[in-house]
């Protein structure tokens, strides 16, 4: 195998555009330490012991996350070139904007100096909302839940749990990014007449950088940091996302948001975190799912989804057949009058 193919493994840790960039991991651990030591009054040793709990990082569940990270990356290398990209959508939107004669780029040119800032904010907000929306659909639509429940099958949470994803779900996320990000880029590129830039830090989107630097990796961790009710109406805290992973039924389909909690607030799916909350992560027992077998993790969702589709088709046929039976032509007598049912 070409060595370059395996470059993604170190690249993910040294590239600030990636979520598990070493800097973000370190800042996450530091925030966790501050939380435990300063707010929860743990001792120095106990804080460190809890943060680097080997039972978490060396658990079976975590090893599945690590394995999926490697295998999924290889699978995505194969599929990436044929997937819809942001550029295709952005170019389409850009040309469409030019083809219409209603909005002219000149009309908002006076905003040009603020445009990179406005663009960076809009990009981040739209991206976050698209993540919320698709995440909600992954839970609400049965076919999609077949794949998304892989992520929820994690029984411990570590920053690597983000990679506990079925490749089909990965493809859905790629399409989501292409559409939402491509649309924003296309529109802003039109507005700015092609002279658009992004506010970046170390080559990464400023807001993504801040989001990750301020402990985004703690969402998938056993350190339960809450922001307090007021802030948790606006921003999703790590503790709120951990609720999202809870086995308990009352927590199901709650807190879909990634950065902003306002989406959950509007869609009535917001749950605030509790101090000292103890949460058991994973799937409920109703979900008959093999959690730690890679082969089954890849295959079962496909079979389950396929079965669901076949069932739906079968049900549809049954419905249509029933409908047709009710519509069968009534017999007519010689005077063209409908014959009544003998029993009626």
């Amino acid at each position: 195998m070409d060595i370059e193919v395996l470059n993604f493994i170190p690249d993910n840790f040294i590239n600030p555009q990636k979520r598990i960039f070493l800097g973000y991991l370190l800042s996450g651990f530091f925030i966790a330490f501050l939380w435990l030591y300063c707010f929860r009054k743990y001792t120095l040793i106990n804080s460190l012991k809890l943060i680097f709990d080997k039972k978490v990082y060396f658990s079976k569940s975590s090893f599945v996350d690590y394995s999926l990270y490697v295998f999924n990356s290889l699978i995505m290398i194969i599929f990436s070139p044929i997937l819809l990209s942001q550029l295709v959508i952005a170019t389409f939107i850009f040309e469409f904007m030019y083809a219409q004669n209603i909005i002219e780029p000149i009309s908002i040119n006076y905003l040009s100096i603020f445009l990179p800032i406005i663009f960076t904010i809009c990009f981040f907000i739209v991206d976050d909302f698209s993540k919320f929306l698709v995440h909600m659909l992954m839970h609400k639509i049965k076919f999609l839940w077949c794949f998304h429940k892989i992520h929820h099958s994690a029984e411990v949470l570590t920053p690597m749990t983000v990679f506990r994803t079925h490749p089909i779900e990965g493809i859905i996320f790629v399409l989501r990014n292409a559409i939402s990000q491509g649309a924003v880029i296309g529109i802003f590129f039109f507005i700015s007449s092609g002279e658009l830039s992004l506010v970046t830090v170390l080559g990464a989107n400023f807001f993504s950088f801040m989001f990750h630097l301020l402990g985004s990796n703690l969402r998938h961790s056993h350190i339960s940091i809450s922001y307090g009710k007021l802030v948790e109406k606006i921003l999703i805290s790590p503790a709120q996302h951990q609720i999202h992973h809870s086995v308990e039924k009352k927590h199901h389909d709650k807190n879909f948001g990634v950065t902003f909690a306002i989406w959950d607030y509007f869609f009535n799916t917001l749950v605030y975190s509790q101090s000292n909350q103890k949460i058991k992560y994973g799937l409920s027992d109703e979900e008959n799912f093999s959690r730690n077998n890679i082969f089954k993790i890849y295959l079962f969702p496909i079979i389950e989804c396929f079965t669901l589709i076949l069932n739906s088709i079968f049900k549809s046929f049954k419905c249509i057949y029933g409908y047709l039976l009710n519509l069968k032509p009534h017999k007519l007598n010689k005077n063209n009058k409908v014959l009544q049912n003998e029993n009626s």
Binding site: Q86, V162, E169, N205
Partner: peptide, 12 residues
């Protein structure tokens, strides 16, 4: 788009 980083990865 290049600046936004590669987005074609299976990440939740």
């Amino acid at each position: 788009i290049e600046k936004l980083g590669p987005k074609k990865s299976a990440e939740n």
